[in-house]
Design a protein around this nucleic acid. Structure first.
Length: 577
RNA sequence: GGUCCCGUAGCUCAGCUGGAUAGAGCACCGGAUUCCUAAUCCGGGGGUCGCAGGUUCGAAUCCUGCCGGGAUCACCA
């Protein structure tokens, strides 16, 4: 289904043939041979670098290799011409029938067009959001949420078996703080005047939690010491916060497969078992860390702690797993959590984190490498900050939380689809400026609109043509699509499977967004040509066959846009008014 | 000071395991609509790819060192 992969197979078999005939030496490594879209469409439909990457190991001139390869390739019916160009590129022009044949393929496969099996059913765990259950999700979580969800869909599209996972940090001291905060709201619900000292969460969102607690237990905990109510309120409050977070996620249409409780690692021997496993590899020891370099060294004092030898797996310094008082550091349960993921049989792990976790990457990779003996790759995707604007002015106020802009504020203002798309128009590791006013603007300046507009235009045209079925369109005579702009559009469609594979292997969903913009652009250009030259209009009363072929083509555009937006989690609209 | 990320057109950013004359949008200038959505399209000007070395047939891309911006940095999760 991936035309580029198909032609690459052809190139490789031609190369093997050349080896068999003695035209190339044996033992050549073909892994660097690629077949790609050429930078300039004038060069042809596809280009291969085979002659250039093989020239040196084969000790031949690139052009000599290219000449022979060109002869072999043109013998194949799929290849019209193969021209040697530049330093040794081989530019291929395909038999138009190959491109034309793509359209029925797209119409018949529908949303499945572009799916691949590069994942080969490998189990991949994508952990994302994982916000502390102490309040609603804010803008800082939103990008990671959208990114993780889209990456998951992308990997699924590429043939991986994906698990979306959220780890609930319900074991740490911040939950004690949450419980105390809720206790105050509980007292408040009973009519007591309360003040909120430093170190508790003052947010209004805890008011209903305090009231709910009152409704559940009445006045049982009034004037009671902390050790009486702490455990129960911790659980009660955590559940309430996870309820909030789940409803925030629902606003973006995100559903997790697994919610993993960090607390489940404590008191169950899981952390101990994990560290035992590391100790068996000689990676746990008692020791004292050197002072940090630089001026932060002030106030530092040596402490003997239990340390993980992360330097054995690429980290810069070993990391403590136990505090000097014997309690676990945060790192310890997190190692155990990743150990658990490995034991659950995942072949690959992905963590989506905020950029403020940058210092955490090496140690976690070291831990996973150590625990899996280097067999389970861990990719940590750091999402950089989102800067919110409205009409060019920084946007910071939140009506409900007072400090952070909430995810729900953003979705309320621009909608889930716009939020998702905009969040995916940047690489995850580049900072993102998000202008809430521009995001709802209906213009080409707004990529969401621009892409969806192309989709809606297709529907408009099809409607005008009486909504022919995909089956009927698939049987049209595509050979009538001969105009350059039409061929360019089909070539863009042909790139989709390849692009989806690349985006998946690189864990970069933003490439989908950029591709969709380009596809929409090709479509808008062609659509406009019909205004200048009536013969190029999609619907021609005087040419039924041609009309059918064109309708099939634009229907294929809609199918691919729909598939792409589907991966991004955006629902295309059939009309924009 | 260590580590990580970023540095590409006036602005915001793409640039696909290194490949051909470095691309797009905005802004600016000039055009296009009796028509399926002008909410669009076409053309033009605009670049020492932060700087300097290195690797090679070839570097925005890989390596080293600087410069600038951001994040982070030992018993906080």
């Amino acid at each position: 289904m991936n035309l580029f992969a198909e032609i690459k197979t052809l190139v490789l078999s031609a190369l093997h043939e050349m080896v068999g005939e003695g035209a190339l030496p044996a033992d050549l490594n073909f892994s660097n041979v690629s077949v790609e879209p050429p930078r300039d469409a004038l060069h042809g439909d596809m280009a291969t670098n085979a002659a250039m990457v093989l020239a040196k190991p084969a000790k031949m001139k690139p052009r000599d290799i290219a000449e022979i390869l060109a002869q072999k390739l043109t013998a194949d019916p799929r290849i019209d011409t193969a021209d040697v160009a530049g330093p040794g590129f081989l530019n291929l022009r395909l038999d138009p029938a190959i491109l034309h044949g793509l359209i029925p393929q797209i119409l018949n496969s529908g949303a499945d067009f572009g799916k691949s099996n590069i994942g080969q059913g490998r189990k991949v765990n994508v952990e994302f959001i994982s916000a502390n259950p102490t309040g609603p999700l804010h803008i800082g979580h939103t990008r990671g949420a959208v990114f993780g969800d889209a990456l998951s869909s992308l990997l699924d599209f590429a043939g991986y078996q994906v698990t979306r996972e959220y780890v609930i940090n319900d074991g740490g001291s911040q939950i004690d703080t949450l419980a105390r905060s809720v206790y105050l709201r509980y007292l408040e619900a009973h009519g007591q005047a309360v003040s909120f000292p430093e170190g508790v969460y003052p947010g209004d969102y805890l008011v209903p939690v305090g009231e709910a607690l009152k409704a559940k237990i009445g006045d049982a905990y009034i004037d009671q010491p902390e050790d009486i109510w702490m455990e129960e309120i911790r659980n009660f409050a955590t559940d309430a916060m996870m309820g909030l977070i789940r409803s925030d996620m629902a606003l973006l249409g995100i559903e997790m497969d697994v919610f993993f409780s960090e607390k489940s690692l404590y008191g169950t021997g899981k952390i101990e078992a994990c560290l035992d496993a590391l100790e068996a590899k000689g990676l746990i020891y008692q020791g004292t860390l050197p002072p940090p370099k630089g001026k932060l060294g002030e106030g530092w004092e040596p402490r003997e702690q239990t340390l993980f030898r992360s330097t054995a797996h690429g980290d810069d310094v070993d990391r403590p797993v136990k505090k000097s008082d014997g309690g676990w550091t945060y790192f310890a349960p997190d190692i155990a959590y990743h150990y658990d993921k490995i034991q659950r049989g995942f072949d690959e792990l992905i963590d989506v984190l905020g950029a403020d976790h940058g210092g955490y990457v090496k140690r976690m990779k070291a831990a996973v490498s150590a625990m899996s003996d280097g067999k389970v790759p861990l990719d940590i995707k750091l999402c950089q900050l989102v800067r919110l604007f409205r009409d060019g002015e920084p946007f910071k106020m939140s009506k409900r939380a007072g400090t952070f802009v909430l995810l729900s504020d953003v979705v309320e203002q621009v909608g889930a689809d716009v939020t998702r798309f905009v969040m995916l128009t940047r690489k995850n590791d580049a900072a993102l400026d998000f202008d809430l006013a521009k995001a709802t603007e209906q213009s080409k300046d707004n990529p969401v609109f621009y892409v969806n507009y192309a989709y809606a235009r297709v529907f408009s045209v099809l409607k005008k043509a009486g909504n022919p079925s995909d089956e009927k369109l698939a049987s049209a005579n595509m050979a009538l699509l001969t105009h350059d702009a039409e061929i360019n559009l089909i070539k863009k469609l042909a790139e989709w499977p390849r692009l989806a594979e690349l985006a998946a292997t690189h864990h970069e969903p933003h490439r989908i967004a950029f591709y969709l913009y380009e596809l929409a652009s090709e479509f808008h250009a062609l659509q406009h040509l019909g205004k200048v030259d009536p013969d190029l209009r999609f619907i021609r009363e005087d040419a039924v066959e041609c009309t059918e072929a064109r309708l099939a083509m634009i229907r294929a555009v809609a199918v691919v846009i729909s598939a792409g937006l589907g991966i991004l989690g955006v629902t295309p609209r059939n009309e924009m008014r």
